[in-house]
Amino acid sequence: MDLGTITKIWDSILQMSAPHPLICLFFFPGGLFLILAALLYEWADRKLVARFQNRVGPRVFQPVADMLKLLVKEEVIPKSVNRSLFIVLPIISFACVMTASLYVPMFGVEAPIGLHGDLIITMYLLSVMTMCLGMAGANSMNRFAVVGATRTFTQLFAYEAPFMLALLMPAISAQSWNINVISEYASAHTWMIATIPIGFIISVIGLMGKLELAPFDAPEAESEIVSGALSEYSGRGWGLFRIAKDVELVIGISLIVTFYLGGFGNLVSFLLKSLGLLIIIALLQSSMTRLRIDQTVGFWWQAGAILSLIQLMILILVRIL
């Protein structure tokens, strides 16, 4: 069976019936389906990194096993923490990313909810997730976790502005804050990776900063500060944080694909494009060493912010002229 048939079947499944909002929320395209997809993405990322390092890498079901194991493991709650905060923070961060996923078109499906200004909501929810991470570290009363939390926040202030600007540029081009409208604009015009190249690069690297992947993993540097902000979390709490991060990866990749690589298209093109992005991310991850936190901040404010401002200026000038 060639890819065209699969796409057609997929499209016909989508058109069969307008799903009930609750089904949207819990099974498809949000909820269960999204979680499984996120675990698959995590596997693809780990496998690609392993292949780049000439290793065999994990098995397909590895992230699923990891997640199930974490969910059934004992959860240790340290004595000195604020108990309710300790329990609630992973749930909030998980809820945030799952909510954010409802505004983003994924896997060839339009976003279930489209509001005016949902781009801002999505970015805000993704930031809240990082804030939760930092707060969890600060709440842990563990010196390593506190150092990790400080680094998480520092890094948040470093990459957040350029990353936001990078996602703002397509919005300015399309003259809309609505992700669905921007994606329609993107599929109608030339790919924005060609018209806004700097924005694309910054958004990909910004996504890596957001996910604390290799060159920007100072907040969870294993060789210095145990496991960073989440050192004290075990079992369920840590599992939720990990799922939240995986879902964030899917959301980030979907946003970049939708904005810069020509709209959300259909399932096959979406998967191919996101695989391409994952390969780039894995390549960067395995070819670079960890930056110190001051180098991270310097990188983002000296290179990232200025470059994205220049790109923004060019964009606005082109619009005016």
Binding site: L230, S231, Y233, W238
Partner: peptide, 22 residues
Amino acid sequence: ITPRYDVERFGVKLQGSPRHAD
């Protein structure tokens, strides 16, 4: 954890924190 004996194929990962390890 080097390419020759890579134990990630069994799912073994070296963790930094005792709270995360089995």
